[in-house]
Each structure stands twice: as structure tokens, then as C-alpha cells.
Design a binder for these strands. Structure first.
Lengths: 335, 335
DNA sequence: CTGTTAGCGCTTTCAA
DNA sequence: TTGAAAGCGCTAACAG
């Protein structure tokens, strides 16, 4: 069933059917009704490939998600999709796994589908400049920070990971903690783990607290399971720590489970703070003290900047969204 | 940049370029290398719209997800995507919210994009037969059960919700519980909540335990927040209950949080079982006793059945995947 | 092995 | 207001 079949049944030409289906004004009322009734009768829908091939005016925004498993990215995704829908753009979601090169994938998708813009959730496309360079449409990286490239097309919207980690660490210190272990991700580059680590270290040095990386930093993936494993290792290496700075809530929760199993009470024996502020934090037992990233604002600002770039040729921008410190029950005041 | 530009630069015709790019054998080595080098030079990629418009052989499988927020559906989605990728099909993910009519959306998407098959994660497309009827390609509903329509194209793969709920309730009863409240979803139709309720009731009646729906059933959404609200209401209405049957893990965890806040210990004062078996269950404190749905098997079987229908014109099938009962720490033996 | 060309389903200009 | 027709970028059949 094509536009041609509809036209034949209506006794008109394909152009007329097309005009009706695209809400062009120059069709007689009678013809419009005729066409609509036939379209209705067959449940006819225009072929998207042909339509988009023909139309120069592209309306697709691609959303590239690095890993579906992250609760944080999911809430961003959900909100962005909802916001895009009424705007006459089509959102096309592509999920990558941890090991895909997001810039390369984005590049391929750009040439295949010619979207008007690309949203990166998670990932760090700016780390792959040669792949990224070929993408000539506005892009925005949400939740990770990017280095602003001069005259580039990559914006970013993120929580100030440095400031947030520093704030959180200051809080631990203010509660009397000085022997603090870290459960964190891969360091290096401009990734969020590095930023959070820098913020953490900045607080320690400001407060005159030494840090022995080899003993006190355990690398972990952002999962319950790895958080738990890391906690075990950390406690073995550093038995007299009083607090743990975990770089995500899921790590923190995995760690808490492990601490319970090792017979250490949170917060009585060990205090812990997380990062992200996923809903679960308020339902865990004990409630997790954490940094809440404002997912609504991250989504809205990210999309807003992208649309600004697309529709008004606005410049690429890097923007921070304020974090919220959420005091739970997982940190104990010492002395 | 189109195939024409590549051809011009190579000094050959578009057909040759097309042949190279589609791995047809009948191209000389020299020409193939020439073309590939030019393609490489420009990072050229075929336009997907034109390609798909032209090709009759369709290779897209649409995955319709009802609600991104469900941890269960996300793990299904992730696995299915990974499995589709190497099979030369393209997976196209569409996320619906709770209120969308999945059959109608599927119908529209079918005509727009002509996929070879559709996978429904969550939802109940069989509830909208008039919209669903127009879809002439194989479909599979994963995680919810569907009623097999005679000669239809809708398969389903799910946990046997009835049997699982019955098993779980039998367990509560065997541990000495007779005053059991339920936190569940909307009943009615062929939805999972109704199946789980039926299984629950079947166990009670088998064990000669009466059930006062008005007092003992509280309706809730599948979220932490609603689970917590429901628990409060349930305990107010039915203060001397000894156990709660929650229809999902997130409801159960919301409920546990609420119970703690009301000063009731789990499992000492109230026992609770969940449903789904999300990873969090093993990291919560106390570990949640629950039914684990085998997401790997659900995904693999679902995709397998769909491919069977697509490639071998196999019949639609309804299949159950065995559940696993996971004993945690949230149920206490009475007496 | 390679070039030429019809045509996938649609939109849009140009004429009528 | 409508019809006719070009052409979006590509594939594949056909001819050479």
C-alpha cells in the first residue's frame, strides 16, 4: 500500500494525497475529506524512508546512551525523550556498550541517518577527536564534562564533579573523618572519575590530610557487585579507615552490603558517602548520604542548548548544573 | 557526499561502488581497492534511507519498551540488543510511556519502517486487537503473557506468573504465615498483576486461608515510592498482618523502608517477599526473598522464537521460562 | 568485470 | 485547486 494506491482509490494524483497528508493548505475541502477517509479506511501511513530521503529538512535527533544499566542515564533518557516528542523532532535512541567508541558510532550514524543533532548520555566523545571531527551537526554531552574545543560543535552539561566531590569530602572531614578510603572508577583523561578524584584530593589537601593512593584507592566498575568487591579489598588493606568515599551510589550500596557481611556496621563502624542521588538512596537501609545530580535540569538544559545550536546556530557551551547534597544516615559524627 | 561523488573520483560508475560497498564478488581487485581507498579517505557511509527504500529485503527488528524505568525490562533490552547485533539485523528501540497504546504505536511503526519483526518488552499488545490486527509480521511479547490468538502472529515468552506467585505464597504459608497482605498492581485483563494475584489466591485457598480483599490488597504502581505508600496504608488497615506479598522487588523495597520508618522490623515483625529478582535484592539489607525471573533466558528464547517465525515461518508460540525462588533474609519462620 | 538505467515511495515545483 | 513529472541516494537487473 503506497501513496499511489491511495491516489487511485481517491481518483486523484499522488501529489494531492501528499499535500493532504502533510497538511498543506491548498487542497479543496471535498478532496481532503475524500483522501482522509480512504487513508483512514486502510490505516495508511507514509513510508518513513521515502519521506526522509526526499525531504531535505531533517528532524531526527539521535540519542547515544553509553550503557543502559545506569539508573542515572535512564532517567535522563526518559526525560529527554518526553521533551523531544512534542517538538516535532524524532528521537532515535542508540545504546552502546561500555567498550564501544562513541565518537566513531556517532560518526557512522551521522552519515547513515543525517540527524540534526546528537545527544551523548555518558561517554566522552571528545576523547576521540579524529572520529568526532567529521560530525558537522551540534552535539551535546550530558552528565560528563567535555573540554570545550575552540569553534567546536560539542556542548556539555554536567554536574560540577570536582566541586561536588570536594563538598562531599569536606563534609566527611567536618564530621571528624580523616582516614578515608575511596572506591572509584578508572582515573585518567577527562572522565568523571578523575574529576571526582581531583575534588576529593583537593579537599584532603586543603584540610591537611595525607592520602596513600596505593592503600586507600580501590578501582571498581560502577556496579553493586564491583562496589562490594572493592569494599572488601579496601577494608583489608586499610582496616582502620573510618569512612569511604564511593564514586557512585551503586558502588556505595554494594560496599555497604559487603561491610554488613563483614560485621561492620554503617555508619557506626564505617561511614560512607555515595554519588549520583538515585532514588534508591532514600530507600536503602540506612539512607545513603550522597550528592544528587539534578537529572531534570541536566536533561532540560542539555536539550535546550542543543536546540539552541540547531535552530539559532547558537555557539557550543559548557554548562554546570548545581548539585544537591543529600544527607542520609550513612555518616556518623566522630568524637 | 553520495555514491556518485565516490564513483566520479574513482573514475567508475555508481554500480561498481555499490557492489564494493555491499561485498559483491564481481569486482576486480584493483577497482575494489581503489574504491575502498576513496571511501576511506572521505569516511563515506551509505545513506540508510535510500538503501532501505531500495532494498526489499528488510533487516530491522523493532523493540518496543513500555517504560524505561523498569530495571527488569532494561536488562532484557540490553541483552536482546547485544544478541541482535551480530545477526545482521538492525535493532531499533522505541520507548513508550505507561499510557501509550503499544499496539497502536507498533502499528504505526510497522507501516513507517516495515520491520521484519517486533519485540514487545512489557505491555500487553494483545489487549488491543483492532490495532494489533493490521501488523502482518511476527511479534513476540517478552515478560508478559499473551493469550495465543488462533493463527495469530503474536508469540510470548514469560515467567509463569501464576505458578511463581503460588510458589512464593506457599512458601510464606509453610513458614507459618496466615495473615498476609498484598501490595500489587492493577488487576484485570491478562496483565501480570492479575496472574500473580490468581497464583497468590490459589495458594491461599489450597491452604484454607481466607482473604479479605478490601482490607488486605493495596494497589500500587511498580515503584519504590508507591510501594512505600502502599505499605503504610496496608499496615494501617491490617495491623496484625505477619507477612506481605509484594508483586515486585521495587514495591517490596519501598515497603521495607516504610516499615522501618514505622518501627516495624523486617523480618522480625513483618516478613516480605518480592517478585522479579533484580540484582538489588541481594544487596538490600535485609536481602529480599523473591522470585527471580531469568532475564537471560527470557531474552534469548524471545529472540529465538521471533527469528524462527521470521526466517522459517515458524508458528507463534507461548512459552514459559522457569522461575527461580531466591531465599533471602526477609521472611521469618513463625512459631 | 563494468556501465547504464529503472525504480523504491515520497515531496515539490511547474503548468494547466 | 490539481496533475504531471523530476529526483532524493541507492540497488540490481541487464547489456556489453
Amino acid at each position: 500500500m503506497t501513496i499511489k494506491d491511495i491516489a487511485r482509490e481517491c481518483g486523484c494524483a499522488v501529489g494531492t494525497v501528499s499535500r493532504v497528508l502533510n497538511d498543506h493548505p491548498d487542497v479543496s475541502v471535498k478532496m481532503r475529506e475524500k483522501v482522509l477517509s480512504v487513508v483512514e479506511k486502510y490505516g495508511f501511513i507514509l513510508n518513513a524512508n521515502a519521506k526522509q530521503l526526499k525531504e531535505q529538512t531533517r528532524r531526527t535527533i539521535v540519542i547515544l546512551v553509553k550503557g543502559t544499566s545506569s539508573i542515572l542515564l535512564n532517567s535522563l533518557l526518559e526525560r529527554i525523550q518526553k521533551r523531544i516528542e512534542p517538538l516535532l523532532y524524532n528521537a532515535s535512541v542508540v545504546v552502546l556498550d561500555e567498550y564501544d567508541n562513541e565518537a566513531r558510532v556517532a560518526n557512522r550514524i551521522y552519515y547513515e541517518h543525517k540527524p540534526v543533532g546528537i545527544i551523548f548520555l555518558g561517554g566522552s566523545p571528545d576523547l576521540f577527536p579524529s572520529d568526532f571531527a567529521r560530525i558537522p551537526v551540534p552535539c551535546v554531552l550530558i552528565s560528563n564534562e567535555s573540554r570545550l574545543m575552540e569553534g567546536g560543535n560539542l556542548s556539555s552539561v554536567s554536574t560540577d564533579n570536582f566541586a561536588a566531590a570536594q563538598y562531599s569530602t569536606d563534609y566527611l572531614v567536618s564530621m571528624g573523618h580523616r582516614r578515608i578510603g575511596v572506591i572509584g572508577g578508572d582515573l585518567g583523561g577527562s572522565g568523571i572519575s578523575q574529576r571526582r578524584y581531583d575534588g576529593f584530593m583537593s579537599s584532603l589537601s586543603k584540610n591537611g590530610i595525607p592520602f596513600d593512593y596505593e592503600r586507600s584507592y580501590v578501582k571498581s566498575k560502577y556496579s553493586f557487585e564491583d562496589g562490594a568487591k572493592a569494599a572488601r579489598l579496601l577494608v583489608e588493606r586499610y582496616p582502620d579507615l573510618t569512612a569511604i568515599f564511593a564514586m557512585s551510589d551503586v558502588m556505595a550500596i554494594g560496599a555497604m552490603r559487603c561491610l554488613f557481611d563483614m560485621g561492620r556496621k554503617v555508619p557506626d563502624d564505617v561511614s560512607i558517602v555515595g554519588f549520583d542521588g538515585i532514588p534508591l538512596c532514600e530507600y536503602y537501609q540506612p539512607r545513603l548520604t550522597t550528592i544528587r545530580q539534578q537529572t531534570e535540569l541536566l536533561s532540560d538544559e542539555g536539550l535546550g542548548i542543543l536546540l539552541g545550536c540547531i535552530e539559532k546556530s547558537g555557539p557550543a557551551r559548557n554548562k554546570f548544573i548545581p548539585f544537591e547534597f543529600m544527607e542520609g544516615e550513612s555518616v556518623k559524627r566522630l568524637c
